[in-house]
Design a protein around this nucleic acid. Structure first.
Lengths: 252, 252
DNA sequence: CGTTTTTTGTTGCTTTTTGTTGATCTGACT
DNA sequence: AGTCAGATCAACAAAAAGCAACAAAAAACG
């Protein structure tokens, strides 16, 4: 009975079928070690093994967690993947609310030993059940439309942390007005997260680069110089000025 | 019984699995000391030890939550459906952690205008995004294996509410010992939820009616007379005494 | 105070686990 | 069938974790 048993069972149950290599990479051990750990588990009949993969005993059971439909899912998934590459194992993160952040959280399930604080119940729930993570939910009263908290408690909790990264998002970006969000609460939360983080990472998908937009979102103050901006397509030229001091990352 | 007992139990309960070295570092003592303190705890069956780590006992070999969510899914879904019939629109609920509760939460998505307080981030996230609901997340620090909070904040928040229903669950039921859960935290949370609710509803699937079981879960004090017990199959005769004053509901 | 008891740290040794290397096997494709 | 890449297995060496016994420190006690 190994200390990795739970982790492997979790991965198998979650994905239905996983390759030995994937597990090895996630657990940061050798393939051989995984095989050794897996052996007794299949002997007990708790998982099944075929050449090339190990599969759950009752077939691929998919959606335990809400697989919510979002627009631009593909684009966001690409961004999420990039973010997951940038964030190292063991990092501490403060994560913003938002659909992009939600998908980033899913991608971060491949990282281990993260310390996470978030005011989004969805993000907290996603990352809390990953073995090795330490997750803190900031706030009590959840906003209806996205399950995020913006009460006093949320801000107090966030303020009591100190993290490596703030993972931020915006509802759109304007060449002159910068990053825009939907309400005052989101502005303040964004600032609170940036305050406690030594580095900020703003994730915006292609569709957010809008030259002239509808709605009346609020402006986020400029990001600190050197902050990362992760996006899935090179932003139009018009945004050059806005992004001058920022570290923009696009897929290779 | 050492002064460090509580700290170690807390760490294990929170993270699900901790290395001896980690504990030693946090408590600022030697590895060897930790081993010594741990020894009686594992003898008492309050925690479990494997080479390289100390793991929490949630049942002899409980799979992690993602897996449990799909186990007995059919049975749990039937129960969830019954619960969703009992709870009216507009009700206020306090919901316990647990895989059964998780599925009940999903079923409750068909109800409207619920007021919900829960210490489970998964349940909070599930119900928060339903339009019309008001959802409160109790607690900050999330336990690893199920994303639920049992910190001071969680109890304080729960205590400040007053609701119609407490939705409870148990890990198994014993004819004489009654409803059993896995650790002291769960006992206290269950009591806290019952305290603030005018009516209690205990949901247990068929597999929980166990005459003689492994593991060493803790006893929940008897439910108030008239509390509802929702289950998917008529319990064996042996449980008659236990259920005397309770309102047992099974599918028609 | 001095003594006894308990707890903690240290050391050396044993056991278990993990990584590495290379041989063997499997499945897909000519 | 023959070939080839990737997966698996076996065996050994290195590393990590565990254990037991004793010494030092701290706490308890008269």
């Amino acid at each position: 009975m190994s200390k990795y048993d739970q982790d492997i069972l979790a991965m198998v149950a979650l994905h239905g079928t996983v390759s030995v290599g994937d597990i090895a990479q996630t657990l940061d051990v050798t393939d051989q070690t995984v095989r050794r750990i897996v052996q007794p588990l299949v002997a007990q009949g708790r998982i099944r093994k075929v050449h090339g993969a190990i599969v759950s005993v009752d077939g691929p059971n998919d959606p335990p967690l809400p697989a919510r439909l979002v627009e631009n899912r593909a684009a966001k998934a690409r961004i999420a993947e990039m973010v997951a590459q940038i964030i190292p194992d063991g990092a501490s993160l403060a994560i913003d609310t938002g659909s992009t952040s939600g998908i980033i959280a899913q991608a971060l399930c491949q990282r281990r030993n993260l310390t996470v604080v978030s005011n989004s119940s969805i993000i907290a729930a996603t990352l809390a059940v990953i073995p090795g993570n330490r997750v803190f939910m900031a706030g009590t009263q959840l906003r209806a439309h996205d399950g995020a908290a913006f009460d006093r408690n949320a801000f107090d909790t966030v303020a009591s942390f100190s993290v490596d990264w703030a993972i931020l998002s915006a509802s759109r970006v304007h060449p002159h007005h910068g990053f825009l969000v939907n309400d005052q609460n989101e502005v303040e939360m964004s600032l609170a997260l940036q305050d406690i983080a030594s580095q900020s990472l703003m994730a915006v998908d292609q569709s957010k680069w809008i030259l002239q937009g509808a709605g009346s979102p609020l402006r986020l103050p400029p990001l600190r110089d050197g902050s990362l901006v992760v996006t899935d397509a090179r932003p139009p030229e018009d945004f050059a000025t806005l992004l001058t001091a920022l570290d923009v990352r696009t897929p290779a």
